[in-house]
């Protein structure tokens, strides 16, 4: 789980081009949108693309996406729940 979260942070930084951000700057539970990292609705679409390209998980409904993309923690939990044990 920790390894997955670190990898996710690196992938988020790369996908969203968060140039001055390092993985350790992102708190596992900090909100990605609004305050937190200050991401917006286009970023949320990009993060869904990230999930699809890297983890082969397709999120169809933007409303569902919003729940999954609350924080790195919720993203990691969602990815784990979709992967075979």
């Amino acid at each position: 789980m920790e390894a997955l979260k670190l990898k996710l942070k690196q992938q988020i930084i790369e996908a969203l081009n968060l140039q001055d951000t390092k993985p350790e700057d992102i708190d596992d539970n900090a909100p990605l949108f609004g305050e937190g990292l200050g991401l917006d609705s286009i970023d949320s679409l990009e993060l869904m693309v990230l999930l699809e390209r890297n983890y082969h998980i397709k999120v169809e409904d933007p409303r569902e996406g919003r729940k999954i993309l609350q924080s790195v923690q919720t993203m990691a939990e969602f990815i784990q729940s979709k992967q075979p044990a």
Partner: peptide
């Protein structure tokens, strides 16, 4: 490249 799947919307916008 991605065969019309998992496309990032930013370049389109």
């Amino acid at each position: 490249r991605y065969s019309e799947t998992a496309l990032n919307p930013t370049p389109f916008i």
